[in-house]
Simulated scan of single mutants.
Amino acid sequence: MDLIVYILILLSTGAFVGFASGLLGVGGGFIMVPVQYFLFTAIGLDPDTSLRMAFATSLTVILPTALNGAWGHWRRGAVLVGPAILLGLTGLIGGVVGASISSYTPASILSFIFGLLALGSALWMLGSSYPEIIENPSNTRQSYLLWGFMGGFSSGLLGIGGGVVMVPLLNLLLKFPIHKAIGTSTAFIVFASIGGIITYIFTGINATGLPPYSLGYVNLLQFLVLAATSIPMALLGVKAAHRLPGEKLKYIFAALLVYIALKMMGVFQWLNLPL
């Protein structure tokens, strides 16, 4: 693949991911993982190594992107700090556990799990009636700690920020208004991604056949190119999110999840569709 095309793919992916992160409170791993997996396999890496590097590098991009998005949401009063910290504490632990399991699991299994998780989240959002919303919800600490761990586990296991799981949980189960669900999820992602990043670095430190400029399973070159556009675009996504009504945000989020789920589960390939 031509180097210029390779870089342009990464830059455009980073821009889209940054905007989606700010707009929907997701890390953007569900976009970066399939794109990076394609690029890593295109340069000759085996599928298992390619998927782990896609997970690890995506999480590394997600961290500064989520920091920028969380700052923008916090300035608009859309981050509930107490819940975000509780979710993040166990989210970090869950990220370590998920990444540890992912480092030794076949790529085909992880891709299918990734798709099922995204599809389940989308159907849950689309099938639920719009919930009774509490402007400042008072859930128990135990509930935040439990769901934080589950979100962090999915983050580490699948190289996503955890927002794919966290936004529906906060909005539908814990009764957060959609804008605060997105803002608080973005702050949670900062914690969740750290655990996964550290684990992927250590589990991949002695791996063989990695491309140049890799720190464990994290490829630093792809990180820099993706982050160059994802970080500034996150604030544009935040601005767009606060201009859209909550119901529209819910359906945009769900539609994106359905597409990514079908893509990762291989449905388009099975139907011979170029999507």
Rank of each mutant, 00 (worst) to 15 (best):
G91I: 08
L10V: 03
L59Y: 09
L8S: 14
L8M: 15
A228L: 11
F114Y: 15
Y6T: 07
A78V: 04
I205P: 13
N219V: 02
G152Q: 04
G98A: 08
L63H: 08
S100L: 13
L169H: 03
A56D: 11
P64Q: 03
G159E: 00
M233C: 14
H179G: 03
E132R: 13
L244G: 01
G22C: 05
G196Q: 06
L271F: 13
I133N: 13
A84Y: 09
G266R: 14
V61W: 06
I198H: 07
G159F: 07
F38Q: 06
T140K: 07
L23A: 09
P211Y: 01
L119M: 14
D46F: 11
S230T: 07
A84K: 02
L173N: 09
A66F: 00
L275A: 08
S100N: 13
G77S: 09
A241V: 00
Q142H: 11
I260F: 10
G209M: 01
L110R: 04
M233I: 07
L67T: 10
L271Y: 12
G156A: 06
I252G: 04
A261C: 03
S128F: 08
P177I: 12
G72S: 12
T57H: 01
L273E: 05
G148W: 00
Q269S: 11
L87K: 02
P106G: 11
G246S: 14
G159N: 03
L257P: 01
L45N: 00
T41N: 14
G115L: 10
F188D: 00
E132M: 07
K180N: 06
T229M: 14
G22V: 04
G195C: 11
T229N: 14
V267I: 09
I31Y: 02
F191Q: 00
V258G: 02
G148M: 01
L249P: 00
L235V: 06
V225I: 15
Y217F: 13
S111D: 12
M1C: 01
L110I: 14
G159H: 03
S193G: 12
D2F: 10
Y259S: 00
Y217W: 06
G91A: 12
W74N: 05
G77P: 02
I260D: 12
L275E: 10
A228W: 01
G237Q: 05
L116H: 06
L59F: 03
A234D: 07
L39Q: 15
L89Q: 15
P245H: 02
L158E: 06
V26L: 10
A181H: 04
I194N: 02
P106A: 11
Y251P: 01
I31R: 05
G14W: 11
A255I: 02
T65W: 01
V218Y: 10
G22W: 05
A255H: 01
P106S: 09
I231S: 03
I133E: 13
G22H: 05
I252R: 05
L220R: 06
R76H: 15
Y104H: 15
V17T: 09
F202Y: 15
L117M: 14
G195M: 13
S154E: 06
F19P: 01
G161F: 05
A20H: 05
V5F: 11
G266T: 08
W147M: 08
A255P: 00
L11K: 04
S193M: 08
G195D: 11
